[in-house]
Design a binder for these strands. Structure first.
Length: 423
RNA sequence: GCGGGCGUCGCCAAGUGGUUAAGGCAGCGGCUUGUGGCGCCGCCAUUCGGGGGUUCAAGUCCCCUCGCUCGCCCCA
């Protein structure tokens, strides 16, 4: 009687061998771009004190308010599976005094957890690769951060993509703007949708990127954030835009763009694709000069972004795109007979040590069966090691996809065999 | 969390209340136990995501549940 089969948890997805190829491509490309740009990797725990995210992301945000996987551990500590990477990176940098050693250019990658309703491009466990520049406050570091993301995405060939950006100004700018905006919206309460009414109390700036038509119409007449920015903030934003123009990175200003997390200031940006349906954001980020301070460090400017890997892979997997060819073995080892099978095991290991991809037939089966498998493996060569070869201390190399003739090699001359197979 | 759609073999997929659940791909075995690719033959869902119910009869109708999906929401 077979036991009942189990399923993975809702929103938790298995990546099978046919998927991991694309993931590895994305990861390798990202790693390469970070290395070129002098950005070092940091790895932090998946589990953190709940406090970190409440303080870092903002208690009023949806992420903290209703999307966290939080539980008490056996020591009765409140723990949370990280819903994003920035807070952890900043925590780690502070904990280990990294910021006393000058600016840090860091990247991270890995799973994040948010308890949301799953949808295409949105899962409960999802993966991000992110970049954080800590201690870099110049507008040109905004430009550089954005350029790294843009170039990485272009290199992957997931276009066409759109870069949108906005400036949220300084905390002071936003306090002033928030007052005028709330005053305006209060006067038009009747025209607001329910969600926006709710946000009016908790997080009024987020109303700006509401998709509700009536709310959008109302916002067209609302005071603009860009007009509320101080001259210094406006100038700073201009410098960022100039930098992007210098690098010929196309962008669009979106004055409604307000990032979801509390810690953003000045530059906020998003890179979106029109191929992804509702979850269109592939990369999002911005400046967060207040966060280090908020997490107990000395005030330190910072900017960062995160890429959603599932969404990226979704774009790469579009049917019209080329998939990377699956990696095939160089050699398939056909083997039969007790002595030969033992020798085949030794041979496979020796050739692997020379860097060859070698697939060893499980053995025992008829030669015809083994050749069938050799053919299907896609290997260009088969090595035949049966009783006869074994007793002569030889192995037969047989080309499977070319007209070359078979060649007998000495079993102990791995060097020569490897050279022949790599030719 | 709210609303709509969907759920038949590892993958694609027929089937719209009535005897035994098509077919294709993949897989496995054989023709061919020292030689593959092609071909031919055979095997591969007592069961239609799961559980109840209606009916003489249900993959087909109803309810619940799980999952996926689209939109809202959120965001990477």
């Amino acid at each position: 009687m077979a036991a009942e089969t189990l399923q993975s948890l809702r929103g938790m997805v298995d990546l099978l061998p046919r998927d991991t190829e694309l993931w590895q491509l994305v990861e390798a490309t990202a790693r390469e771009h970070f290395q070129r740009a002098g950005v070092d990797e940091i790895r932090t725990p998946l589990l953190e004190q709940t406090q970190l995210f409440c303080r870092g992301i903002g208690a009023a945000t949806d992420v903290v308010g209703k999307e966290m996987y939080t539980f008490q551990d056996r020591g009765d500590r409140s723990c949370t599976l990280r819903p994003e990477g920035t807070a952890s990176v900043v925590r780690a940098a502070l904990e280990h005094g990294l910021l006393t050693q000058g600016p840090q250019r860091l990247w991270y990658g890995g799973p994040m957890f948010r308890y949301e309703r799953p949808q295409a491009g949105r899962q409960r466990q999802f993966h991000q690769i992110g970049l954080e520049f800590l201690g870099l406050g110049e507008p040109r570091s905004d430009v550089e951060a954005i350029a790294i993301a843009w170039d990485l995405l272009m290199d992957l060939g997931v276009g066409p993509l759109a870069l949108e950006l906005n400036s949220l100004g300084t905390a002071e700018d936003r306090i002033h703007y928030r007052q005028t905006l709330v005053a305006f919206l209060q006067a038009h309460r009747a025209d607001l949708d329910v969600d926006s009414l709710d946000r009016l109390e908790r997080n009024p700036l987020r109303i700006l990127d509401s998709k509700h038509p009536a709310t959008q119409a109302l916002l067209a007449t609302a005071p603009m954030l860009s007009e509320a920015l101080s001259p210094a903030s406006q100038d700073r934003f201009e410098q960022v835009l100039d930098g992007l123009r210098t690098l010929a990175i196309p962008f669009r200003i979106n004055s409604r763009l307000v990032r979801g997390l509390d810690y953003y200031c000045h530059t906020a940006f998003e890179i979106t694709s029109d191929q992804l349906g509702a979850q269109a954001t592939v990369c999002g980020g911005g400046r967060y000069d207040g966060l280090v301070d908020q997490l107990g460090g000395t005030p330190t400017p910072a900017i960062g972004w995160a890429l959603g890997l599932e969404r990226l892979v979704l774009l790469l997997a579009q049917p019209d795109r080329l998939r990377p060819a699956p990696l095939k073995p160089h050699l398939y080892v056909v083997n039969r007979g007790a002595g030969a099978e033992a020798a085949a095991l030794v041979l496979a290991r020796a050739l692997r040590r020379h860097g060859l991809r070698v697939q060893l037939d499980p053995g025992g089966a008829a030669f015809s069966k083994q050749f069938k498998r050799a053919d299907r493996s896609g290997a260009p060569w088969a090595a035949v090691l049966g009783e006869e070869e074994w007793s002569n201390g030889q192995v037969l190399l047989k080309p499977l996809r070319s007209a070359q003739s078979d060649q007998l090699c000495a079993l102990d001359d791995v060097e020569a065999m490897a050279a022949r197979l790599q030719a």
